[in-house]
């Protein structure tokens, strides 16, 4: 399969940076905290639901140490904390000469690449958690889609503004060339 014209055509090219040479920068360290808070909120919701169910169905009363069932969700806590930290550490973004990249995912690892001269507009958003930690989400939009094509979810506020200015300048310069 590796000998098809397609493969050779695309790979054996000159001095181009190899796929793995994209130098990903980590996100802000508070990213793990925001992920954790969001996960804990869902966990709290599910735990409440679980408690209501075992109370109403009388499941807890049926066993001699039935009250232990109420503690069952606690097992999930260390796992949640572990995965939130892992997820945050695996996220990264890279801004190169002509394109911007973002990678994420623990199991399903995705890498999205967006060239500057396909960027239609850039948006900075901050939700409540972001404001609490002083973070910003930087969103890039290309043509023909409703949602952002690439989102860098946790940057320090001044960094997001700096990056936006840098990329908009690049985008503008490119448009002037045409």
């Amino acid at each position: 399969m590796a000998t098809t014209g397609f493969t050779t055509e695309l790979i054996q090219t000159d001095d181009l940076p190899e796929a793995d040479s994209i130098n990903y920068q980590p996100l802000d360290r508070h990213h793990a905290s925001t992920l954790l808070i969001i996960s804990l909120l869902s966990w709290a919701g599910l735990t409440t639901g679980w408690s209501v169910i075992i109370t109403v169905t009388g499941l807890a009363a049926r066993f001699s140490h039935g009250y232990l069932l109420y503690l069952l969700p606690l097992i999930a806590l260390p796992i949640i904390i572990f995965f939130c930290r892992l997820a945050a550490s695996l996220c990264g973004y890279a801004v190169r000469e002509q394109d911007v990249h973002y990678r994420s995912g623990i199991f399903w690892r995705g890498e999205t690449s967006l060239p500057f001269n396909r960027i239609q507009h850039v948006e900075i958003t901050r939700d409540i958690l972001d404001r609490f930690f002083g973070l910003s989400k930087l969103k890039f939009f290309a043509a023909g889609g409703g949602s952002a094509d690439l989102t860098i979810p946790a940057l320090r506020e001044e960094e997001a503004i700096k990056l936006r200015a840098f990329i908009l300048e690049k985008v503008g310069a490119d448009h002037n060339d045409d």
């Binding site: 590796a2 493969t7 090219t13 181009l16 796929a19 002509q98 394109d99």
Partner: peptide, 21 residues
Amino acid sequence: VPDLVAKGARDHILRVIFAGH
């Protein structure tokens, strides 16, 4: 598809977009 093909295709497309104008 082979990992190398996917990444090669990505790098090639980025180059086409940058160079092609």
